[in-house]
């Protein structure tokens, strides 16, 4: 009896880790190239863009909101980088381009945030409109043509590495640590949980809920900008048509990681696992050369399976 309880406790606490490890072992057995250093680093490099988005999305979901405009914001970010780099071509200083991309994305997200916080627009609708607006903006700014990014300095962001460790992955991990600290060790983090848990009670406890929601959306925008910069640098182009559907992967990562879409609960360590699981699925499917027709089904099934196992083990407690 007590042994049973122990196993289920372990599974509840580390269920996702176990799933992840099992997946790794399975893929490792089936494909010898999986456990090579290059491949592992590749996975880290590939997940970093979605990872950065998922960090912001975790915050948004914890406050009980959602943001489906992040894919479009990623595109805007890349296009802005392209536009600014084009207009200051000749200098090696890419800082203005990076800064402009982050600022523009933050502002756009703040607009969605205001719609949600002040005008009480349902977050799905507010960010749906922003999704269309931002995509349109990206097309208008770029005139529909991708910018070719030739700056060598800029290429470092997405392609560079420190030692053997890819720079995008490093940016992701540093961002993750910073946001983990914010969520778990500051009053702001507490407020984020409180607003999502019960906005009325949070208001009655003197929390400025509108400001919290606005800030969370602002952060989401900034992170979308960052993610877009890395993506643009990685593929060497700022394309207005790119990153469609990225929001879904980010939301999926959070949900796999145990963040409730109802708000109030969620952990960044879970999100990290969710991001890795999703990244691993793509990696494994291509390493194992699984038929493209089947890939989508397999991916959907694995996501559903992970979430069911996680919810089931958690529900058992109650």
């Amino acid at each position: 009896m007590s042994k049973n309880i122990n196993i289920s406790t372990i599974f509840r606490k580390f269920g996702l880790v176990i799933i992840l490890v099992c997946m790794c072992i399975l893929v490792g057995v089936l494909s010898p190239s999986f456990f090579t250093a290059t491949n592992i680093l590749n996975v880290f490099r590939q997940v970093s863009m979605n990872g950065i988005l998922a960090i912001g999305m975790t915050f948004v979901l914890i406050t009980g909101n959602i943001d489906i405009s992040v894919g479009s914001l990623v595109a805007v970010s890349g296009v802005i980088v392209g536009k600014v780099l084009e207009s200051i071509s000749g200098t090696t200083n890419v800082f203005p381009a990076v800064l402009a991309a982050i600022i523009v994305c933050t502002c756009l997200s703040l607009i969605s945030g205001s719609m949600v916080a002040f005008f009480k627009v349902p977050p799905m609708i507010a960010t749906l409109s922003m999704m269309t607006i931002a995509r349109g903006m990206a097309l208008v700014i770029s005139n529909g043509q991708p910018y070719i990014l030739r700056s060598k300095m800029f290429a470092v962001i997405g392609k560079g590495s420190i030692g053997a460790f890819p720079l995008p992955a490093l940016i992701f991990i540093v961002t993750l640590i910073i946001f983990w600290v914010v969520l778990n060790m500051t009053t702001f983090g507490r407020k984020v949980y409180a607003v999502g848990g019960n906005i009325k009670a949070a208001t009655a406890s003197g929390i400025n809920c509108q400001r919290v929601i606005l800030t969370v959306y602002g952060l989401m925008g900034a992170l979308s900008g960052l993610s877009g910069i890395i993506l643009a640098s990685r593929i060497g182009s700022g394309s207005p048509a790119i990153a469609e559907g990225y929001e879904m992967d980010a939301i999926a990562a959070c949900v796999i990681g145990g963040t409730s879409t109802l708000g109030g609960t969620g952990k960044l360590q879970g999100t990290l696992l969710g991001v890795l699981i999703i990244g691993l699925i793509s990696n494994a499917l291509s390493l194992l050369n699984i038929n493209s027709y089947w890939q989508q089904i397999v991916k959907g099934l694995i996501i559903a399976f992970a979430v069911i196992i996680d919810t089931y083990t958690k529900a058992k407690r109650g």
């Binding site: 060790m185 009053t187 983090g189 507490r190 407020k191 949980y193 409180a194 009670a201 949070a202 109030g264």
Partner: peptide, 28 residues
Amino acid sequence: AYGLILCRSINENISLAHMNQFCKGIFL
């Protein structure tokens, strides 16, 4: 509706209105 955040801990609920009291810089 107005008193508690049911999904959060006792600790968090009690300190909710006066978190600033435990601030060390930006940290709690």
